[in-house]
């Protein structure tokens, strides 16, 4: 009788062990891969990354670090505006705002991203010239107002 009880206890314990087993399978869900970099072009390698879902904008649903190439990926599970914030220890922070559509989750389209990146090429040149123009126009206005007084 004691042996029977011992066998039953061991069988139950083994069942518990199996219940804590681990496994994996390839996910069918679509991930959003992002690359983060500084305005100088340097990659934001191994920086803290947090993901905020449309359901809760205060608490991150996922946190981790970018890889050495500044890449970070997450898997959205609902449509809406998602936000990924990557920051370093020096106070730099990059925020990626992404609108995930139901079509994307269903595998029909790509995501729509609103990237906050440094403009490039001709766009950069035009913005630089616009900035210089604004500075000199402000100087002109200030000079006229000082002359008027």
């Amino acid at each position: 009788m004691r042996r029977l009880v011992l066998v039953l206890v061991l069988a139950l314990w083994a069942g518990e062990c199996f219940a804590h087993g681990v496994g994996y399978r390839q996910s069918e869900l679509r991930a959003i891969p992002l690359e983060f970099f500084y305005s100088t072009g340097e990659k934001m390698s191994c920086r803290e990354a947090r993901v905020f879902s449309p359901k809760d904008e205060k608490f991150a649903v996922q946190s981790g670090r970018t890889d050495e190439e500044g890449r970070f990926a997450f898997v959205p599970d609902c449509s809406g505006d998602w936000r990924v914030i990557v920051r370093d220890e020096e106070g730099h922070q990059c925020t990626a705002d992404l609108t995930i559509t139901q079509d994307f989750l269903d595998g029909r389209t790509q995501s729509q991203t609103q990237d906050s990146l440094l403009p490039q090429g001709m766009d950069l040149l035009i913005r630089a010239l616009l900035g210089v123009s604004v500075i000199f126009n402000l100087a002109l206005i200030l000079r006229r107002s000082k002359h008027a007084h």
Binding site: G131, V132, I135, F136, L138, A139, L142, R143
Partner: peptide, 21 residues
């Protein structure tokens, strides 16, 4: 910044603005 220095200030401000690039 008197009126004579305003253009100089604008010039230096522009240089600082562009130096970040």
């Amino acid at each position: 910044t008197d009126s004579a220095k305003i253009v100089r200030t604008a010039l230096i401000s522009s240089a600082f603005f562009l130096a970040s690039l």
